[in-house]
Design a protein around this nucleic acid. Structure first.
Lengths: 145, 145
DNA sequence: GTAATACCTAAACTTGACTTTATGTCAAGG
DNA sequence: CCTTGACATAAAGTCAAGTTTAGGTATTAC
């Protein structure tokens, strides 16, 4: 069993955030000893899941919904599974878009390398795809078609 | 040259958002004809870049900074390059973390598949890594070590 | 015994990125 | 002529996710 201060250090989260999560219902049924929160293994596992679900873009109120389902019992297994399936789809799409974003950033890094070398953008202004190094042309092709 | 309404449709962005971006200085030197915004190729390219930079997690005020550098001329090439290098690092890290998030989601999907099949979590509560299908154990290993 | 720490609550405040509202101009169509 | 539609502005409102503040309790350290 851990105090809020210990958990704050373990997860590198401000105490105020942990209290806020608790207030929002993300630790249903958390124990207290004379008013003081006691974080057990259930709460630590909850925090691990919260971290991932948040990173996947899920809102607090929907994480709360999930936690409520966990309390409700086996009848909510299908709801919980659907939530994770949906998140999986969302994150897979996000990965594809982030990859495209990375292509753009690589292109721009190359672009400014070239601009710095040339001292101007004259040559770059007249670019055609064939001029581009292959590791950098993804985004250019994509954005200008 | 396009009107704000045309650009709104082209980029699937609300008109109010385009006006907000303009107010925040994301289209420095945009033309006007008797008060009406005229979006040219420069502004469209800006929007393509804004889309990516936003997706990479950059804030509006930092995008504005970049746009100001573009107006300022070749002396800011190094600043602009550094911005894209930093974004590249950030996005590469984000990709790694998203991949881990995806591992967790895959694990949870498998978990609830199993729970639905069993009708309870008894078997799952006593899990050890060796019990896990290999395509699903990444996250479990990671989180419980 | 008092001062420092670690905990608690409720309520107000903050931030970023928009969105909405209220009001107004201007050109084209019936 | 007058209404409709597309544009404009300034200012207020919204929303999520915290953070901060003000005030209080309980235990330990000197």
């Amino acid at each position: 069993m851990y105090t809020i201060g210990q958990v704050s250090k373990m997860f590198d989260l401000p105490i105020s955030t942990l209290r806020y999560y608790d207030k929002e219902g993300l630790f249903p049924g958390m124990e207290r000893q004379s008013g003081i929160r006691k974080f057990g293994e259930r709460e630590l596992e909850a925090l691990r899941v919260i971290k991932c679900l948040k990173f996947s873009g899920l809102e607090i109120k929907d994480i709360k919904q999930f936690m409520s389902w966990c309390v409700e019992g086996p009848s909510t297994y299908p709801d919980r599974k659907k939530l994770f399936e949906t998140r999986k789809t969302v994150v897979e799409n996000e990965l594809l878009m982030l990859q495209k974003t990375l292509d753009m950033l690589k292109f721009k890094c190359w672009y400014y390398d070239t601009a710095i070398h040339d001292g101007n953008e004259n040559r770059l202004a007249a670019l055609i795809p064939d001029d581009l190094p292959s590791d950098v042309k993804e985004w250019f092709d994509n954005a200008h078609s």
